[in-house]
Design a protein around this nucleic acid. Structure first.
Lengths: 197, 197
DNA sequence: AGTCAAATGTTAACGCTGTTCACATTTAAT
DNA sequence: ATTAAATGTGAACAGCGTTAACATTTGACT
């Protein structure tokens, strides 16, 4: 027993949450281990009892981001019934998440986690995001009378490239248009349901 | 007159070239002003006579990258005559450049230059890249008998999102397929010529 | 040719960063 | 109660971007 809690209790998740909040607000470039440690009233080296280093903490934040994004994608998926409407809903949810959490999205898909292969859980969490638009493609195939349960590689790549590319361009302010975000989404998402054949 | 040249002569371009080489080889994350200065046998603070800071040097490197990429895009454009073939050629050139210079491409389009608006020349150089695929769209419109010289916002966004998204995913090893790069390009680029209407 | 200001390069220092090491404290099992 | 493991601390290290004061070279004007 101590008047002050020498042990934090759940420092690991507290670190992830605090880092998530700091990155979401000010970007990962401004983020530092010393700041997040200090914000929790904890020494700067306490972190190394729960993470092997900065990259590991960033990876944990990114993983949580993927899971949150996936939950939102599922809600978008469930909100519609037809394949095409579902796909458009998923695409909207994807771009909206990216635009509402640009700093987090950059961390999840960007260059900052240079050693992604060191954190295999990231790939698993990311596939949870793309699971839902892929499900839409499968349903579309079935509605078209195709019984193949395997998706075409090109279709998968097309849909992933489109939503990721559009999100990235919008986040980095590389879209030179006077259209609003809603208008852009309304303009582009219909174009991605022109499947091959 | 001195036995050693106190003045470098063209330190500015030497810095850009050296920084370009270092970033292209090892990535911008590993890059530092001290390293590039030392590689030129020059003090670490000499740099500040030619650039306002690290971001300014990175911006200059990125700008050069855009111009190099644009030259390559023009060659791809000129290598074909029909609009659709030209667009595919441009898309191939785009993705190939990104895959051959992933670190440079990340710098050009990524999050590292957080303050892009401070360097308006970047936007100009970038538009030189997209000038050629846009030209393809215009030619396509003409071949289809449309006389409108204005491009649809949606078409521009679609093509930019596709090539940028596909390049980013490939660079970050986020493409989960066993296809080779050439196969991927062959698979996806035909899909981007399905214009609207 | 001589003078002086501007351009360019150097040295030293500041604060911040990620990381490590030796040490302290708390927890939990024997 | 004892002991080992888990968890947190404090000090230190090297590397970073940036700045300030100082040194050298260049070039222009008399």
């Amino acid at each position: 027993m101590a008047d002050k809690d020498y042990h934090h209790g759940d420092l690991r998740v507290a670190l992830i949450d605090a880092a998530n909040a700091m990155i979401d607000k000010n970007g990962a470039g401004d983020f530092s281990l010393r700041k997040v440690s200090q914000s929790l009233g904890v020494s700067q080296s306490a972190l190394y009892r729960h993470f092997s280093g900065k990259d590991a903490l960033l990876a944990a934040v990114a993983e949580q981001g993927f899971l949150d994004m996936a939950a939102r994608m599922e809600r978008a998926y469930q909100s519609e019934l037809e394949a095409e409407a579902r796909l458009r809903s998923c695409a909207e949810a994807y771009v909206n998440f990216a635009c509402e959490h640009p700093n987090l999205y950059r961390l999840m898909f960007g260059e900052l986690l240079a050693d992604r292969q060191n954190f295999p859980e990231l790939a698993a969490a990311r596939s949870e995001v793309f699971k839902w638009p892929m499900q839409c493609l499968l349903q579309h195939n079935r509605e078209q009378g195709r019984e193949d349960s395997e998706l075409r590689e090109g279709d998968k790549l097309l849909i992933q490239s489109l939503v990721h590319g559009l999100s990235s361009l919008m986040i980095e302010n590389l879209v030179t248009t006077r259209l609003s975000r809603e208008q852009i989404i309304q303009e582009v998402t219909p174009l991605m349901v022109f499947f091959r054949r």
